[in-house]
Design a protein around this nucleic acid. Structure first.
Lengths: 335, 335
DNA sequence: CTGAAAGCGCTTACAG
DNA sequence: CTGAAAGCGCTTACAG
């Protein structure tokens, strides 16, 4: 069906070895035969079979990417940059949405192992789990595994982590500076990343609001859950005047609810999100957000992989600093 | 390095053929030897090499997905559903962000051809182009190619198209019903899909506003371009009281600009977006949007592929009806 | 029920 | 500069 190296060899009256040499642009082929073969190759639209090639060279030029849900705003971007970058280096990405259910993860790791991927990228702190670590040790013990925003201890694992904990403490400091009396923290699901943010919030409270009753809640993932939780919270504690949400997406929903409740942002309630997503510029009012540098995390992941694949060493764990981007959902600092 | 079928065969004192039979769960193996081999397989964490397997079975179980930019809100979702569904059927996705520049597309098609993908999904009307059609005919003439929201005529090409043209005409009808005097249409880039929307808008104008000066503009892709275009338009034609944006994302920016200009939505200006994205529920006010059924388009694409791969026939081109979801950015219909 | 053999499409020493 | 041969890890008739 497909034209092979042997077909071309026959037409050119040479051996397959010679054709292989010109396909791979190697030396030791006379200019005339090279030209003749090149012409044939082009005429017949020859395309080498990567599977066959990989079988002998023991390389697939494929890299696995695991993500719970590519629709998650902060991860879509990461996947985009990773794919573009890797593609530029001649690699293809095998991307799987694994869901949050750990049971299913092993299946995907095994599947990627069958395909002989050369490296694995895990997108999200959620993969910082024993299930995943064990699956890796079982099925992919010999290739580099890079975790974006997470880390676990395995000989072939590397972590690049955004320092969200310190970042959220900084958010509390900002609220304090701008006159907020009673800040709270609302997060969707419990992931290692969200727990870090929560710790950062509690540390901030401890430092700037030593006598405050700490309120840090897990409020679910659906639009309805988040809206309801915000509404109930504001009704129960009407004096709340600062909310840090674990993600911009939640904060967007929060802004809507506050508008519906007639609470002005930032005059009555200040709001801070996390991710510095594109939507933080679009909300009304625009959203102050903690930039957790996910772009840098992704890019570093790619750089690590390229380095490891070429035999270099890279640090096992790396921490990237965050930065608050101030917009209209928080008050200016008192002079 | 990796344990092969031959290693297992040696340990079990059988031939590779027999091991292959139990790996593939085929008949003609005595229960005792099967059990013995199964045990060995498990103990050694045997994982078959898909490349080797594919080489002989002439199948890769991989499907290519081409998209200009996975971050585009309406496409992220499509990719998500496609990957999940295909994965459930035992296929892996090779996803590439090709960018909008046609020159680079051929490269990706060739790359996918090397990997011997069994089908190709093109996400977005932009691929409805001669460049792509020719690349397909050259490098992938024998596998099913399904275009989401586009179509071109090739023996192996199938299109699933959202009837956005009629949908936008319906949007104009809605504006007419709700008392809008002067509607305009703003789109970002010129893609076949956007041109269809524009045609739908012009048809609507022609029908409901026969004497209106038709204003349908291409206003660029960046946040700044879109904001500036909306601002200038409102200053130049202050009597505009209805805007249809080619995507919800643009409409979100539009809402911000209108708020900044002190124009009330929907009282002063009605706004309609397209895609019915998650953000249409989050904006202030919530956004009336044309649901172009991209979920159905994606799902149909997968179903088509599965059908074609199992030898069934499917229609070459399919049209899916759209639906307006009314929210707070348009006025209620006068009784 | 089992194994020897050929072959999928390629690359890579090795010999000439 | 060129080709014959072996081998990558698997499956699949075929013979027994």
């Amino acid at each position: 069906m497909q034209v092979t190296i042997y077909d071309i060899a026959k037409m050119a009256n040479v051996s397959a070895s010679t054709v292989s040499r010109v396909v791979n642009n190697k030396a030791n082929v006379s200019p005339k035969t090279r030209a003749r073969i090149l012409k044939l190759l082009a005429e017949h639209n020859y395309v080498p079979n990567e599977a066959a090639r990989g079988l002998v060279t023991q390389s697939s030029h494929m890299i696995g990417v695991l993500i719970t849900d590519i629709r998650t705003t902060q991860h879509t971007q990461g996947v985009y940059y990773i794919e573009r970058e890797l593609s530029g280096h001649g690699y293809s990405c095998l991307i799987h949405n694994t869901g949050r259910d750990e049971e299913n993860w092993v299946h995907y790791v095994q599947e990627l192992s069958q395909r002989k991927i050369e490296a694995l990228i895990l997108m999200g702190s959620i993969y910082q789990s024993d299930t995943m670590r064990e699956a890796i040790q079982l099925y992919l013990p010999n290739i580099p595994v890079v975790i974006c925003n997470g880390y676990f201890n395995a000989p072939n694992a590397y972590g690049i982590v955004s320092d969200e904990q310190t970042g959220v403490t900084d958010c509390v400091a900002l609220l304090h500076e701008t006159g907020c009396r009673r800040p709270v923290f609302l997060m969707n699901q419990s992931t290692p990343s969200n727990e870090q943010k929560k710790q950062g919030f509690l540390a901030g409270l401890n430092r700037f609001y030593p006598e405050a009753e700490p309120i840090a809640l897990e409020i679910g993932n659906s639009h309805e859950d988040i809206a309801a939780a915000t509404r109930e919270l504001m009704e129960r504690y009407p004096d709340i005047d600062g909310i840090v949400y674990s993600e911009d997406d939640l904060a967007m929903i929060g802004l809507r609810v506050l508008a519906d409740l007639g609470r002005r942002v930032p005059e009555d309630v200040q709001v801070i999100g996390i991710n510095n997503s594109q939507f933080s510029r679009l909300s009304i009012p625009t959203l102050t957000s903690l930039d957790n540098m996910l772009y840098d995390v992704s890019m570093t992941a790619v750089r690590h992989i390229m380095a490891l694949l070429s035999g270099q060493r890279v640090s096992k764990k790396m921490l990237i600093c965050t930065e608050i981007v101030r917009r209209d959902s928080t008050l200016p600092t008192a002079p």
